[in-house]
Simulated scan of single mutants.
Amino acid sequence: MLHSDRGFQYTSLRFKKLFGKEVNQSMSRVGRCNDNGPMEAFWGALKCERYYLRTYSTFKELKKDIEDYIRFYNNERLQEKLNSLSPIEFRTKAA
């Protein structure tokens, strides 16, 4: 899954052909800038809490660290806006 805004470079056929059917593209709806907010917050947190603090020798190391952070973010990272719960805990309580 690749999330982006609706910039011309991301909506072009040339960009879509780079990934073929291996990557699903996600973007905010036209005129709905709030759709992008949660993803912007996530990437901001990932960069501040992991990426800027480490040096990666290989793409494989970077990929593993991002995957580890996604698990951490969803299952363990408490968020004030979710009543000090992790996203998984918040969704479980809501259901």
Rank of each mutant, 00 (worst) to 15 (best):
M1D: 13
M1E: 12
L2G: 08
H3V: 11
S4T: 01
R6I: 09
G7S: 04
G7T: 07
F8Q: 08
F8P: 00
F8D: 06
S12V: 03
R14S: 14
F15N: 05
K16S: 14
K16I: 06
K17W: 04
L18K: 14
F19W: 06
F19S: 07
F19M: 09
G20R: 07
G20D: 08
V23I: 15
V23C: 11
N24K: 15
Q25V: 10
R29K: 13
R29M: 04
G31T: 01
R32L: 06
R32A: 04
N34W: 13
N34R: 05
N34K: 07
N36G: 02
A41L: 06
W43F: 15
G44W: 01
G44K: 09
A45K: 06
K47A: 09
K47V: 05
K47E: 11
E49F: 00
R50I: 01
Y51N: 01
Y52L: 05
L53S: 05
L53W: 04
L53N: 05
R54S: 10
R54C: 11
R54M: 11
T55E: 11
Y56C: 03
Y56T: 10
T58H: 04
T58G: 08
T58N: 06
T58Y: 01
K60R: 12
E61S: 11
L62V: 06
L62M: 13
K63S: 11
E67L: 14
E67D: 14
D68I: 02
D68V: 03
Y69G: 00
R71M: 08
N74R: 08
N75Y: 07
E76N: 12
R77G: 01
L78E: 05
L78M: 06
Q79V: 01
Q79A: 00
Q79H: 13
E80W: 09
K81E: 08
K81C: 14
N83M: 09
S84T: 07
L85S: 09
I88M: 11
F90K: 07
T92F: 07
T92Y: 09
K93Q: 15
K93V: 05
K93G: 15
A95T: 12
